[in-house]
Simulated assay, not measured.
Amino acid sequence: MGGPIPGFRDYTELVGQFGGEDLDRPLAGDTMLYTSGTTGRPKGVLRGRVADTRPPSRAGLAGMQMIRTYLPDGDDGVHLVACPLYHAGPVSYAEGAALLGADLVLMDGWDAEEFLRLVASHRVTSTFLVPIQFVRLLRLPPEVRARYDVGSLGLVIHGSAPVAPDVKRAMIEWLGPVLYEFYGGTEGGGCTISSAEWLARPGSVGRPFPHLELSILDDEGRSVATGVEGEVWFRQPGEFTYKDDPDKTAAAVRNGLMTLGDIGYVDDEGYLFLCDRRADVIVSGGVNIYPAQIEAALAGFPGLADCCVVGAPDDEWGEMVVAVVEPVEGVELDPEALRAFAAGRLARYQVPRRIDLVGSLPRTETGKLARRAVRNPYWSGRERRI
């Protein structure tokens, strides 16, 4: 770091007080990672208790498994950490690469050209990215991209958000068939697909990991036919619960199956295609945005009778935040004034990029906002609604 940092101890001083002999009984331990739902309140995900096993951790083992699957010779080269390590994906693959003998290079914030420079200068062999980073890389001028040799990359793992087919195809044309996508969550589940498989089935997120069983069920919990949309469920080893939230757990775990709340279908070869999401969360640039938080902030605006915040398609970010608002009868509501009001109460990424005025918002007989009826028109004519 170039010198001492106030409040921190010197590493060599800290470890120097311990002996170099092996621990008598080393334990892998485990983590309780947090994920968020439509309310935006973090939920701790408690997985089945790990036995008193030796290291590595469960997260590290998962990262090792994915890397070994697509880099059969392992990864004893260089892994570039280009995403925050507080996310489950980046930390799992970083730990897995380190366990396989790779050196780690950490970016101090995202910059597309700096990413290419680091790949070229360190001869990076693997990395984890999200789709918005693909967009930023592809936006670089051709002469900038040509300046850097990225031929060392053998594995680019990506997930966390849907990727536009044209974007993924362009990345494969540039980097070669080194992109490997996964679909899953902190709770578990999971599918994966190689570049070659994806090119044959554009839009698919792949087939389930070998230890998982994938089911597509209707609202009554019955299996649907091939090609028919339903909710995506997985059967996996072990169980999980949301810490201190039995209702949320009951909604996501049923008869030995678990769901992340997504809608999709499988083709005749078992490849999963995602279509929609039951949860209200908006995913923009790989970041979860929670409509309830935004709606609560907008509710205090004078002249606003009702509002519904939804995600609409955006070619760069995946989704953008749209506020559909119902003014008080007789009031001429100014959308720009509402945006300014929101900007004073929300983080910048939460402020609606578009505000649409309607005469009335649809609600169910029980008074609940019919959010999907508001959202669906924005996705009309698209194969995917996430």
Rank of each mutant, 00 (worst) to 15 (best):
F301L: 10
T249K: 02
Q65N: 09
G184A: 12
G230R: 04
R222H: 13
G367I: 11
G101L: 04
S194E: 03
E13Y: 13
C191P: 03
S223K: 10
G185P: 00
P291S: 12
V78A: 11
A305N: 04
S380L: 14
G318I: 06
T241Q: 08
G37V: 05
F273G: 05
E319P: 08
I386W: 04
V224L: 13
T69H: 12
M64F: 04
A370L: 12
A102D: 02
D30R: 02
G96A: 12
R49N: 07
R235D: 05
R139K: 13
G270A: 06
T35E: 00
T38P: 10
E143N: 09
E336Q: 13
Y183C: 03
R353V: 10
R382L: 15
D108R: 07
S215M: 13
P26Q: 08
I263E: 00
D245S: 15
P210T: 07
G176E: 04
T39Y: 11
R41M: 09
Y180N: 05
G311F: 08
L61K: 04
D103H: 15
L155D: 00
V205R: 02
P291W: 07
E365F: 13
E316M: 13
Y86C: 11
H122P: 01
G381H: 06
L304H: 05
A97R: 02
S195E: 03
L217D: 00
T186D: 10
D245C: 14
G270F: 06
G270K: 03
M66C: 03
L304M: 07
